[in-house]
Design a binder for these strands. Structure first.
Lengths: 244, 244
DNA sequence: CGATCTGTTGACGGCAGTCAAGTCAAGTGG
DNA sequence: CCACTTGACTTGACTGCCGTCAACAGATCG
């Protein structure tokens, strides 16, 4: 095994065919033979929590697929206000093809592993592989749908509904991690890896308000906090109702 | 000329090659020969202001490109709150390919003309025409970028900054209509075709607040209102600064 | 054991929402 | 032509949700 430095692990994925995101990542559009070709231009990189992956307005060096962890996309204002415009989870695609500069910056929210492709390599592959382009188009359309959902949240939902929405999203993503295949009817537990300030930046609130609304949801029995990070949701349906 | 009924003008565009959006619409990805093919499956439809084009959660019957007018995309909540998640202008693409149902409803905000393609026809054309798919992908990525901009607005901007941002957008779109080719240094005038409530639904505010912030921008000299719809912007740059 | 970062709680204030009149413009019908 | 209606817009008074400011608690680490 090669030594892994943060953000700079150049090792080639040993076998794309056994990769955890092979079935649903951008590479799922490829045939077995093509994946072999892909493995030649792909390399894994790891990032610590808090480490910057792409900087706003800079030309990005690479594209990537999230293999493990969570990535947040943020847009800044001149005076320091900022908004998180996207959260990426395993199999999600990171990067902005066909643009000179990234319209957002990307930061690892948890320890993260990416499967990266150099800019030129990836766009060449896109040009020659139609299924991959199709896959990327469908992914982008889905991302646009979720962006619209969050616009509804930011424009019209109350603070409590916003916090409930975020926790519902995180609960859902955490459940997906389980390979049991069934949705648990009662009791979902998971860890919130976002700090209060990050939750606030995602929800268009202040971190004090996030804290208070978490408290309110706890009091109402819709969630149960166990320490600062562990959340238990007795009923996903109740949480969904609370999210508007 | 055939008789045009609202929303039901089935006439074939006489000559796509002379269409106002030929240079930059979805059809700009097509060669001269292909456009001839396109003109066989395209038909124009007109809509009055306020008329519904696509209903939320219903299977859309067609896709289209905006030829003239303005279309708003809205997402509703169960209790009546709603958020406008997109405004479409000439050359913009309307519809959600690869989805059984539309995640938003579309309504004509002004008298509007669309160039429509039936669902099946369009997806067939998309499958066989790679440049068209490429064009749609790039358009979708651009749309996603603007959605991110509006998330920043909805999450972090003040009421005055929001109203200024919308007026700046409308001023810019109105200027594009001019074929002078140059950006006017001083004095842009245009009509706001959105009602106050619609502006509020786009900005995540109430219509009373929109009215007050328009008044505030007028008082500050950043815009000048002439009646209820006519807006004059002495300096686009000043308006941009006021929009955060 | 202090330094630092994150999270929590309380007091207070302001921006924007809510509620309620009232104005204006356009249309309708007697 | 005028009374009446309707819908969009405007203005004012008041409220409250959430932001601001500040103090404090816990956790982690050198």
């Amino acid at each position: 095994m090669s030594i892994v430095r943060n953000g700079d692990d150049r090792s080639v994925p040993e076998r794309c065919s056994t990769c955890v995101i092979r079935q649903s990542g951008i590479c799922s559009a490829l045939s077995g033979e093509e994946v072999t070709r892909l493995s030649r231009i792909a390399h894994h990189r790891t990032f610590e929590a808090g480490q910057t992956i792409l900087s706003h307005e800079e030309k990005p060096a690479f594209f990537g697929a999230i293999v493990k962890g969570m990535v947040k996309l943020t847009k800044p204002m001149l005076d320091g206000r900022q908004q998180i415009v996207g959260l990426l989870f395993p199999t999600d695609f990171l990067g902005r093809p066909f643009s000179r500069s990234s319209p957002f910056s990307a930061e690892a929210a948890t320890p993260t592993m990416l499967c990266c492709f150099r800019h030129a390599d990836f766009e060449a592959m896109l040009a020659s592989n139609l299924d991959m382009k199709q896959h990327l188009l469908e992914r982008t359309l889905d991302t646009l749908d979720t962006a619209h959902e969050w616009m509804l949240l930011l424009g019209r939902k109350t603070a409590e509904e916003r916090v409930a929405s975020l926790l519902h999203l995180l609960a859902t993503k955490a459940t997906l991690g389980d390979t049991t295949g069934k949705t648990p009817r009662d009791g979902v537990s998971f860890e919130v890896h976002l700090r209060r300030q990050e939750m606030a930046d995602f929800l268009g609130l202040t971190y004090e308000t996030v804290i208070r609304q978490i408290g309110a949801l706890d009091t109402r029995g819709i969630i149960r906090m166990d320490g600062r990070r562990k959340v238990t949701v007795p009923s996903l349906e109740a949480l969904r109702l609370a999210s508007g």
